Amino acid sequence: MTTAIIGLFENGDIAAKVLGELTGAGVRKTAIEILQDVAASKISGRLVEAGYDRDKAGRYGKAMQQGGALVVAEVADDRADDALSIMRRFEVLTPEALLEKIGNGAPEQTETAQVIEEELEVGVARTTGGKRLRTEVTEQEVQETVTLHEEKVEVERSRADRVLKPEEADKAFRETTVEMTEVSEKPVVSKQAHVIEEVSLSKQAGEREVTVSDTVRRQDVTVEEIDGRSGTGKKS
């Protein structure tokens, strides 16, 4: 399964550097997308596809109409933490932070320190799978033993030397026919199909809650007073 890792950066140059770091770490270039100077609907739609709610995705799309570049990387689940760490090496912005950067020009001779707070953003990556039923016809040879009944008529001749009486001779000299029937059996094969099992597919849908935990960082700015020093000089 894959997870969508999202990072918003100030400009396309930074996004290109992030892409180079990700590909150098083994992420396929075709799995990385940089969105810049595109319609808000395309940005928010891509984030909804990655698992963001519509309100949050809409804030990204609206903010990026002023500038910025969004990096979307589809990485394997076991590589998600590594990809997130790579993005954090650069300045990942929230939509509000992006607007603040773009809207406020830095006055001359002004030194700034940033209060940075990481926000844990969890997306949902959807994968599809399932099962397929496919019938396959195979053939096998089956043997059955059957008993066949068979009758065979045999002719047997034997020599005789017997004198017939006149009355026997009169009866003997006439045309007669003697028949005996033979019976022979042969196997007759027929086939009949029987349903012995039925396999069906069904789908059940449900929801489950998963708690995702990670560590986010915050950088605060502390204002300190610097003590003034005075000195004296001597004239000679």
Rank of each mutant, 00 (worst) to 15 (best):
Q192S: 09
T215A: 12
F90M: 09
T232A: 12
P107E: 15
A15I: 08
K17E: 15
R28H: 15
T30G: 10
G7V: 05
L22F: 08
D81N: 11
I226W: 03
T3V: 11
I14M: 03
E49Q: 12
A57T: 01
V189F: 10
Q109I: 05
V221K: 03
S85D: 13
R218N: 00
H149F: 08
V212P: 02
G7M: 05
D220T: 07
P166M: 05
V72R: 01
G129M: 00
A83F: 03
E144M: 12
E209G: 06
S158Y: 09
V115K: 11
G7Y: 04
M180R: 04
G51I: 00
T215H: 06
K234Y: 03
N11P: 00
L98S: 02
Q219H: 10
P107K: 14
R174D: 14
E175N: 06
E111A: 14
V210E: 14
N11I: 02
I86D: 07
Q204W: 13
A97P: 05
G61W: 02
L19T: 12
V137R: 15
M1F: 13
G24R: 02
K186G: 11
E198L: 12
A31G: 10
G233R: 07
A160N: 14
A125V: 09
D227E: 14
V155W: 11
L22Y: 13
K17I: 14
I5T: 13
A25S: 15
E119A: 06
L22V: 08
R208Q: 08
R159F: 11
K131P: 06
S236C: 02
E225K: 06
E207M: 07
E117H: 12
P187F: 09
V216P: 01
T232N: 13
K56R: 08
V142N: 04
T147I: 14
E179Y: 05
E119L: 05
L19M: 08
I226F: 05
E100K: 09
